[in-house]
Amino acid sequence: MPNLDRGGSVLEAVGVDAFEERVYRALLGLPDSSAADLAAALREPARKVSRALARLEGLGLVRRPEGRRFAPVSPEAAIGMLVNQRRAELDEVRGAAAEFVDAFRLRDLRNHATHPVEVVSGLDEVRRFSVGLQHNPEKSVLSFDKPPYATPPAGYDEVAAERPLLERGVEMRIIYERPALQLPGRLASVTELVRLGEKARTLPTLPLKLYIYDRRLAIIPLSGSHVSEAIAVVHPSALLDALIALFEAYWERATPIGAVPARATDGLSSQEARVLTMLGAGLSDQAIARQLGVSLRTARRRITAVMEQVHAQTRFQAGAAAAHRGWI
């Protein structure tokens, strides 16, 4: 608490010093006063009082309608506003402190791990820890991408989030479970990431969700639901080596996903190229319809037209045509 015997201020916590509080208290008793009036009442220099009034006006404690004399703003409203503002600032400090703790913890996990596996639990802890790792890889990210997913924050852009990593040369090798590519717009995002430098492949199924950062740390969500309340953090150990080997074994079996051209090429329009790529990636007719934003009947017409254009009688042959063009 402020020490008033030493000239402290009750309002110090919201940014009002002792002299400014004296001026505000005087104005509460002498509303509609000029700076000179208050200076005389306080027996203080007019310039000093004017500076205090300007500061109080900036804080919303004092008003001066159309440049006339000063009047106090209702303490209940004005001080309440300052308290709420300071509370918001403290919340930001608390958030920054959590980031500092995460950075310290990440360093500790990378450099001073004493156990091969550590469990991080709690939605907020898992989210902060995971986000910190996603933005800090130095060399590589290996991942099994498998639904279900947590709901992304509003405005989340997968391409924008990964682009900085690719631009600074981080190797991104991602294996997508086929249902992941069937989500609306997902294949378009993945092919754009491939164009930017991601190495992507797909398989019908994957055994688990997995993230390996710089081959030094692995994350395994411990919940099968879309929200993970706990993750296993695997440090350098035989278990980490086994997870890396598991990833490489699945990588060899997976089908590559190439970048679909943005313009007409090889006799196909960009949309026809997308359809051919989706066929090669094993997407169902329903999934292709969702990706294109059209009805199932329209999607089937387009699928038939593309298969005829590349002389494919089966989806396997369509996949071979897409692979020949480098799109899977």
Rank of each mutant, 00 (worst) to 15 (best):
T298W: 05
S9L: 03
F129Q: 10
T114I: 11
A103F: 09
R315S: 10
Q286D: 13
A161T: 07
A18Y: 07
P116G: 05
L166K: 04
R300H: 08
M278N: 08
A249T: 15
Y213E: 01
L53F: 05
Y24K: 01
S9H: 04
V294M: 09
L240D: 06
G95Y: 09
L133C: 09
E89Y: 05
V227K: 09
V101S: 10
R94E: 13
P204F: 02
G67C: 08
S34G: 15
L283N: 07
A154Y: 06
G7F: 05
R263S: 13
V159F: 04
V62G: 03
A264I: 04
Y176M: 01
G132C: 00
E162T: 12
V190L: 09
R302T: 06
R178M: 03
A305W: 01
I175E: 01
V170H: 00
A320L: 12
R127Q: 13
A154P: 15
F100W: 13
L133S: 02
L210S: 08
R22F: 05
K199I: 05
Q286A: 14
G58W: 07
V120L: 12
A242E: 15
W251Q: 04
V93L: 14
W327G: 07
L11K: 00
E171S: 15
H235R: 14
L206K: 02
V16F: 00
W327F: 10
F100I: 15
R6N: 09
E177Y: 01
R168V: 01
G80Q: 08
V23L: 06
G15Q: 04
G15Y: 04
G224R: 15
A39P: 03
H226R: 14
E57Q: 14
M81F: 14
E118W: 00
S237D: 10
P164S: 10
H226Y: 14
A218D: 07
A41M: 00
A322F: 06
A289G: 07
L206H: 00
N111Q: 13
E21A: 08
A97L: 14
S33F: 08
R69W: 10
V14A: 06
P236A: 07
A161M: 02
I219A: 02
E76F: 10
A78S: 14
Q286H: 11
S237W: 05
Y176C: 06
L239D: 09
P256I: 08
G15D: 08
Q313H: 09
L183G: 02
G293M: 03
S34F: 01
R290E: 13
S34A: 04
D145S: 11
T265A: 15
R178T: 07
R63N: 05
F19A: 08
L181N: 04
A238S: 12
R173W: 06
V306W: 03
R107L: 15
V234N: 04
I174E: 15
S121L: 03
T277Q: 10
Q85D: 14
V233M: 06
T304K: 11
P261M: 01
A40V: 11
R163E: 14
P2I: 06
Y176E: 11
A154Q: 12
L283M: 09
T202P: 02
L283V: 01
E66R: 13
A88R: 13
